[in-house]
Design a protein around this nucleic acid. Sequence first.
DNA 1: TTTATTACTTACTTTTCGTAAGTCAATAGG
DNA 2: CCTATTGACTTACGAAAAGTAAGTAATAAA
Lengths: 109, 109
Amino acid sequence: MAQNSIGHGPFSPEFHAASELVGRKWTGAIIYAIFNGKTRFAEIAAVIPGLSDRLLDERLKELVRHGILEKRSSEGEAKPGYHLTRKGLALRGVLIALYAWAINWPETE
Amino acid sequence: MAQNSIGHGPFSPEFHAASELVGRKWTGAIIYAIFNGKTRFAEIAAVIPGLSDRLLDERLKELVRHGILEKRSSEGEAKPGYHLTRKGLALRGVLIALYAWAINWPETE
DNA sequence: TTTATTACTTACTTTTCGTAAGTCAATAGG
DNA sequence: CCTATTGACTTACGAAAAGTAAGTAATAAA
């Protein structure tokens, strides 16, 4: 079953598209920041050292275009921020798995 | 606990490094192919349309350097191929999670 | 009303990627 | 044995993406 295995099947275009999108430079860090409650442009920029305004803007637009984020103000927010859609929230498991791997298998070089 | 949550903590350099490495162009597809039993250079190239020899070589060298792959011949193999290390095998859960997400949330554009 | 901050946009440099051709060793066929 | 083919890279170069810096318009604060 597709949920529990990557099988021994052919090349998966869906998997490839997902890994090219989610794996793009800074994208992981941006989604991670939003998971951690940073919704405004400046808040996200503040927690990701090295990320420029230009690329943050580019990545946010991509993620909105792909239905992972949406720009809106939720209750209590004066100004609109970036929020995860249901599709975006579903990425949580992927990020948790990658985070766990990163912590357990540090860089060796 | 670090295993089950990405928490609401600060920026994680480990997570960032991991997502930049694993998320690099073609890297996901290459590891996926090796999980699916393709160990030789030409076999990997054959199952990933669009991937050139030059980048396959570059990505394989990177993954070996980071301890995710190693180049050796296992029993029964005449010639050496690329095999996942324990660190590389530990990525299985990440790929399964991403694969499941990709299948459940297809591109909308 | 000046100053500061937010959320971008524009311009330009550097790095990475894509495409193609070339190299060198190991079979395979004639 | 000689030539052809395949496998596994390597080199060269133009194109695309990312990095850096500066600029701008719209609030918000002093």
